[in-house]
């Protein structure tokens, strides 16, 4: 989770049923936030591109896996080279189980195998793929916290090559 010393950069919120009414909301929110948080990074365009790519995968995952009543919140905090993306969403048992299971899998030694299997799977897409990608390709640390019908997905990510 994010430490107390992290600086809050931006927070965006909207009703979940509004968010999940249009797929392109994932793209628009990730592009908007990426543009803003990249501004004071050494190479803003490079950073924006990577940040948007990572955040879009998170939002697409949330788009497909969320509870029904409540708001979607997206908050970004900064700790030096690391940014922390916190996505809050309404949650039910099924939603909670999904994210808890994925995060458990991220800690396993076979995460790269799981990622490749999901990436090149025949047939229906694996809903865990986006989070697997963040953990493997971006070395992101993802945690999940549930409380009173809501769930917070926290992703610590540093784009080492974004100079």
């Amino acid at each position: 989770m994010c430490s107390e010393s992290a600086n809050e950069l931006i927070e965006v919120s909207m009703r979940m049923d509004d968010f999940s009414s249009e797929w392109m909301h994932c793209d628009r929110i990730s592009s908007y936030i990426a543009r803003l948080v990249a501004q004071d990074r050494p190479d803003p365009l490079y950073y924006e591109n990577l940040f948007s790519s990572a955040m879009n995968e998170l939002l697409e995952t949330v788009y497909l896996n969320h509870g029904s009543e409540g708001d979607l919140t997206c908050r970004v905090r900064r700790m030096d080279e690391t940014d922390v993306i916190e996505i809050g969403l309404p949650s039910d048992e099924k939603t909670s189980d999904f994210y808890t299971d994925v995060v458990s899998a991220l800690d396993g030694r076979d995460i790269e195998d799981l990622y490749n299997a999901a990436l090149f799977a025949a047939g229906q897409r694996d809903a865990r793929l986006g989070m697997f990608e963040l953990a493997v390709d971006y070395k992101a640390k993802i945690t999940v916290l549930t409380s009173s019908g809501r769930l917070t997905l926290s992703t610590q990510i540093a784009f080492g090559g974004a100079q």
Partner: peptide, 14 residues
């Protein structure tokens, strides 16, 4: 190609 999500990537790979 500045951005691609995994849905498009998987389709391209296939």
């Amino acid at each position: 190609l500045a951005y691609i999500n995994n849905i498009a990537f998987c389709a391209l790979h296939r």
